[in-house]
Amino acid sequence: MRTLCAVVLVFEAIVIGLMIPIAINLEGMDPALAGGVWGGIAIAALVLSGLQKYTWAHYAGWALQAAFLFSSFLVAGTPLVPIVFVSLWVTGVILGRKVDVQKAAHAAYAEATEGSESSAPGETAGATGGARSA
């Protein structure tokens, strides 16, 4: 799950960074304000993508999704972009959890079959140094 979420955050950081010239050119927003708002969110997305192994960073990713969604209302016509990324984030969480469950089941199965293969029936180590008993 965390890998999918990290990938979404990296691509989201690129798109968030592209919101800066859109806000400046379309809305006439001050470049310092646009850079501060979306530049800060983009940097936070990059940092959080690298920290997704921590639970708190995953929850911070949810907060970043909300921040991107609410900040998009400052520029007309752009709220669709964060809606797409929030959808990708939710899909990544759902599919990632399914993959995590399947990985855990596979690891448990592999561990169970590995343990049964090491003690094959009919083979015992006898007192004479490992001779086979019939």
Rank of each mutant, 00 (worst) to 15 (best):
V93C: 13
L33Q: 12
I83S: 09
I20D: 08
I14F: 07
T124P: 12
G40R: 07
G39Y: 07
I83P: 03
A34Q: 04
I83Q: 04
S49C: 09
I22K: 09
I94K: 14
G96R: 07
L69N: 03
G129R: 07
A108Y: 11
A63C: 09
A60Q: 04
L74Q: 00
I16S: 05
F70Q: 06
G77K: 00
L74D: 03
G61E: 05
A108L: 11
V37Q: 01
A34K: 01
G36Y: 07
W62C: 12
G40Q: 06
G39E: 08
H106L: 15
G35F: 04
G92P: 02
S71E: 00
V75A: 01
I41A: 10
V15P: 07
Y54D: 12
A131D: 13
I14K: 04
G126P: 03
P79S: 02
F11L: 11
S71Q: 02
G126A: 09
Q65V: 05
V90C: 14
E123A: 15
V86T: 04
W56Y: 07
L88G: 04
A13L: 02
V90Q: 10
A60H: 04
A108F: 06
A112V: 05
V81K: 01
A44G: 13
L48H: 03
T128C: 13
F73A: 12
A13W: 02
G36S: 11
G126Y: 05
A76Y: 06
A127F: 09
K103Y: 08
I16E: 03
K98W: 14
M29P: 04
E12W: 01
R97E: 15
G96M: 05
N25F: 14
T128N: 14
V99L: 13
T124F: 14
L51Q: 05
G17T: 00
G130K: 10
A107F: 08
G36M: 10
G35Y: 08
T124W: 14
D100I: 14
F85E: 02
I16L: 07
F73V: 08
V81C: 05
W62Y: 08
A125V: 15
I41T: 14
F73G: 05
P79G: 02
W38L: 03
L80H: 01
A127D: 07
G50N: 08
V86N: 06
D30F: 10
V86E: 06
L51K: 06
L74R: 01
L74H: 00
G35E: 02
S71G: 06
Q52T: 15
P21I: 01
A131W: 14
G130Q: 07
G122N: 11
Y109C: 02
T78K: 06
G17D: 09
G92C: 05
W56N: 07
A104F: 09
A13M: 04
L46V: 10
A127H: 09
P82A: 05
T91C: 12
S49T: 04
V86P: 08
G40K: 04
A57G: 09
L80Q: 02
